[in-house]
Design a protein around this nucleic acid. Sequence first.
DNA 1: GCTCATCATGAACGACGGGT
DNA 2: ACCCGTCGTTCATGATGAGC
Length: 274
Amino acid sequence: MKKISLKDIAALAGVSPSTVSFVLNGKEKQMRISEDLANKVRAVATKEGYKPNQVAVSLRTGQSKILGLIVESIGGNFFGALAKVIEKEADKNGYRIVYCSTENDPVKGREMLRMLSNSQVDGYMITPVNGMEKDVLELVKAKKPVVLIDGYFPDIPAPYVLVNNLAGVTQGMNHLIAKGYSKIGFVTVDIELVQIREREQAYLAALKKHKLGASRKLILTLEYNYDKEAGVKAICKFIKDHPELDAIFFATYYLGISGLQSIQDLKLRIPKDL
DNA sequence: GCTCATCATGAACGACGGGT
DNA sequence: ACCCGTCGTTCATGATGAGC
């Protein structure tokens, strides 16, 4: 069976295609189309199960009503929850989301950007990875709508939405310090992301502010894609090498999980020993 | 003859294929 | 090598008829 087009509906209803278009797009008032005719057109369209040809709509309007979302990873709590909200808001406004991930690989990030571009998406939401600067800049130069999420490029004039890394870490540190801990370690990763750097800076700033001797000696930096076991071992060694530690701050939730494993392996008790 | 309501006409969108 | 029609849809503009 042939796909029913707007023209078919028009022929069946005995009106012109434009009339059908206006009615189905809710512009019958604006176009002064009588209520009776509008109802008739709607009835025919529903009966025939008419669905607009999105390719043609895009061709005509220049809009795809699709937004591209590039996140760090599709799995995981943070980006999963984020995507859910974004999808919901997009849906409210008649947009759909194409969803892909970079795994913090700039090559893959660029590949995804090109894919989205070829798919004619109307806008981009991107969690930036170092190495994507040129491509993002190109989008901005081309006046494409771009929003960066959970990170930004200082030199690129694109709007961004961030977690308040500074306030979050500061609040956490203040809590530990208020509880009387003074030898606080910091475990982070060596990835070049602004949010990670900000967290480390906030950690150091908190120590400095409370005159607890801000130094890098109590900072452990793991490789970003650290092996699970190796990471746990490294944290164990870090704790053993620094017996003066009475508290540890983990820069990310996955580091925290590894850290809990390490602490358990060392048979230390929380919060008695650490 | 004029105004208003009501609906139709036709061009345009971008890429591709077929015809000269 | 170039032009032109094709797809389905949208929208500015035009056309028709009714009522005064």
